[in-house]
Nucleic acid binder design. Structure first.
Length: 635
RNA sequence: GCUGGUGUGGCUCAGGGGUAGAGCAGCGCACUCGUAAUGCGCAGGCCGUCGGUUCGAAUCCGACCACCAGCUCCA
């Protein structure tokens, strides 16, 4: 008998050769139905895998990342099968599972049309109905090359050739279709109940624009129709919340042909922005930062010295002034460094925390521009901290606390990533190791979970990234903390130590919002334009019912304004229903309906954008309520 | 930058070789109205830009620009 150890530690015995599927079914009928793949001693396998030796076995359903991946990946195979049936001349590239679905790349003479996509999807549904088993078999390198070579699958041949020497080469076959694949796969196509092809796009073979452009079909799949529908609804919801659409509707900002990637902020967008900046300034002042502002254009020598000329030139804009070369700053650090260097520093002064809301310009490829999320000029809520090496840990922890506090104010959860040395970088391995270790230490001291991204750091140092999660579960990189031993060296920064000698300070670059512009985009989508009262461009809209209520409505407006509320009065000769509809569409938090009753009693009738009619309030009570909501930054 | 798509009044969109239309928004008038659209009227566009084909181009062709979906890249 074979001893099988399950996840809960229990041990069961089975005759040798029993499949994982049989074990799952024996544990519970439900697990038998829902299990998609298994892990034997930590190695992912198909459910058909026979157990010949004692092993630890674990099962995965669609609710586990492993199960979900296999599910989507299996669907990608069905897609490939369907495409080969409809377009036998198509050559197969790769087809992995991705977050939210899967894709498969094909080399076809012309792009797929939406009609063809529908046809392919219909073919996929047929294959699902046939409930074909996924069969795994192993082949030698020679056999694999012969098989796919004969089929004219040149991309597969390339993949096979790139496999490591000792790799086990496996294929999966369902019906008349066979694909090179490591697996694992779900037992049969019948499991793939709810499949939807969501789009087509060009994509380069192996992601390099030097290679041929293939046609990528995106899709997603779920075990239940209802799950698919919910997923599609979420996508619709994301579209409805698109900050570009809301930005125009709420009149926050615009991007015009005259400045692609250079956003214009309208009055209402500026209110939002100024609130964010004021909050930022207050918090930074309280935490010992001093604010500075450095020029946007600085001369070439500075950028050569900082290393940007060599490492960042492709992203920079240049100009000439009086026969000399200048660059528009893509980062604020050199400016901050010049401020630090403008006078001598004692070790007693450190840490020096210089904060700057700095407007930077970066040349981004035209195709990547996207509303406020990807632009060519943006404002970083930057700060550079100059400190003693002994202060590193504490300073980093201070920044982590700050970021944690900020995101909490907006109701965001976040994830942390640590990025290490990239290829095109400056400095010695030793310096990088020290810096990376310092970041890691601070994260551990703060007890944070984090993921490591090898080779993803800045060219001057490793970094901690904060990815915040919005209400649709999407993540956005905002805050970063970058430790830098190199700039202080390059700019010969010093402080005078206890011993009267000059010493080298260490530097931190950090942002919390990241880019104010992007942050506003994220907030817009997160709140679907219904900003918390403290951020709302218009906090209260006063709606007189008829002309005779105008005087009192104006008085209410004045009193609220005097109380520091951003209030607007709708004086137009329109019905109150109409005014409400418009104020709702503008997502204004509070609407005050003013009619005979209110004018007579000196009250206001309060309607909340989501809470509806809240009844009658005295002006003072209402004012106090809104003021408290603003003060507490209530969500 | 690359692949595919789109470009008509502020917005959403119809039209399509004979010189431009609707709804909403705007403006005017009437209605004086109680929690998501009152009615009537008026005005507004060299149909993204440049070039070509044609007796004639918003319409067909080409180039460019911008935008959209992706690729790649990043705050």
């Amino acid at each position: 008998m074979v001893k099988v150890t399950l996840k809960d530690g229990s041990v069961r015995e089975y005759p040798p050769g029993t499949t994982c599927a049989a074990v799952a079914g024996e544990i519970s009928p439900r697990l038998g139905r829902e299990a998609l793949v298994a892990a034997v001693d930590g190695r992912l396998v198909d459910l058909g895998y026979p157990l010949e030796h004692d092993a630890a076995v674990q099962f995965f359903t669609f609710d586990d990342p492993e199960g979900r991946q296999a599910f989507r990946h299996s669907t990608a195979h069905v897609l490939a099968q369907a495409v080969k049936k409809v377009f036998p001349e198509a050559r197969l590239a790769i087809g992995p599972a991705i977050a939210g679905g899967f894709y498969y790349d094909f080399d076809v003479p012309r792009p797929f049309t939406p009609e063809q996509l529908a046809k392919i999807q219909a073919e996929m549904e047929k294959i699902v109905k046939e409930d074909l088993p996924f069969n795994r078999f192993e082949v030698t390198r020679r056999e694999a090359l012969d098989r796919f070579g004969a089929a004219g699958e040149t991309y597969k041949e390339e993949l096979i050739n790139d496999l490591p020497e000792d790799a086990v080469i496996s294929c999966y076959q369902q019906g008349d279709f066979t694909d090179l694949c490591a697996g694992p796969h779900v037992p049969s196509t019948g499991r793939l109940k709810a499949v939807k092809l969501t789009g087509v796009a060009g994509a380069y073979w192996r992601g390099s624009e030097k290679n041929k452009m293939l046609q990528r079909i995106y899709g997603t799949a779920f075990p239940k129709k209802s799950q698919l529908e919910e997923h599609l609804f979420r996508i619709e919801e994301a579209k409805r919340r698109d900050h570009r659409k809301l930005g125009a509707e709420l009149d926050l900002f615009s991007i015009q042909e005259e400045g692609p990637g250079f956003p214009f902020f309208h009055p209402k967008g500026m209110v939002l922005r100024n609130e964010l900046e004021q909050f930022w300034r207050d918090e930074h002042r309280m935490r010992g930062y001093q604010e500075i502002r450095t020029p946007i254009i600085l001369n070439r020598a500075l950028w050569e010295r900082s290393g940007h000329w060599e490492h960042y030139r492709e992203n920079m804009y240049f100009t000439r002034i009086d026969e000399a070369d200048y660059a528009v700053k893509p980062m604020n650090c050199p400016g901050g460094i010049l401020v630090y260097r403008s006078h001598l520093h004692s070790y007693r002064d450190l840490p020096v925390r210089l904060a700057e809301l700095g407007l930077v310009h970066r040349h981004e490829l035209s195709g990547v521009l996207h509303g406020l999320m990807r632009v060519r000029c943006f404002t970083q809520d930057d700060a550079h901290i100059f400190m003693l090496p002994a202060q590193i840990r504490e300073e980093i922890i201070g920044v982590i606390d700050l970021v944690d506090y900020f995101y909490g104010v907006f109701g965001f959860n976040y994830k942390v990533e640590l990025s290490t040395r990239p290829e095109n970088s400056m400095g010695s391995d030793e310096i990088w190791d020290t810096a990376t270790a310092a970041l890691e230490e601070a994260l551990q001291a703060r007890g944070m979970d984090y993921k490591v991204n090898e080779g993803d750091g800045a060219f001057y140092g490793p970094k901690i990234d904060f990815h915040l999660e919005d209400c649709l579960g999407r993540t956005w990189q905002c805050g970063t903390i970058q430790l830098d031993f190199l700039m202080p060296e390059k700019f010969d920064l010093t402080y005078v130590g206890e011993d009267g000698q000059k010493h080298r300070p260490v530097m931190i670059h950090r942002v919390v919002f990241g880019s104010i512009e992007r942050f506003i985009g994220i907030l817009t989508e997160h709140f679907a334009g219904a900003f918390p009262v403290w951020l709302a461009p218009v906090q209260v809209k006063v709606l007189p019912i008829a002309g005779r209520h105008l005087d009192y409505a104006r008085e209410v407006g004045r009193r609220l304004e005097a109380g520091g509320i951003r209030v607007e009065l709708d004086e137009r000769n329109e019905k109150v229903n109409y005014k409400i509809r418009e104020a709702q569409a503008q997502k204004i938090p509070y609407m005050l309906v003013i009619g005979d009753r209110e004018a007579a009693s000196g009250a206001v009738s309060v309607r909340h954008r989501s809470g509806g009619d809240l009844g009658s309030f005295s002006v003072d009570d209402f004012l106090a309520r809104v003021q408290e909501e603003i003060r507490s930054k209530a969500l």
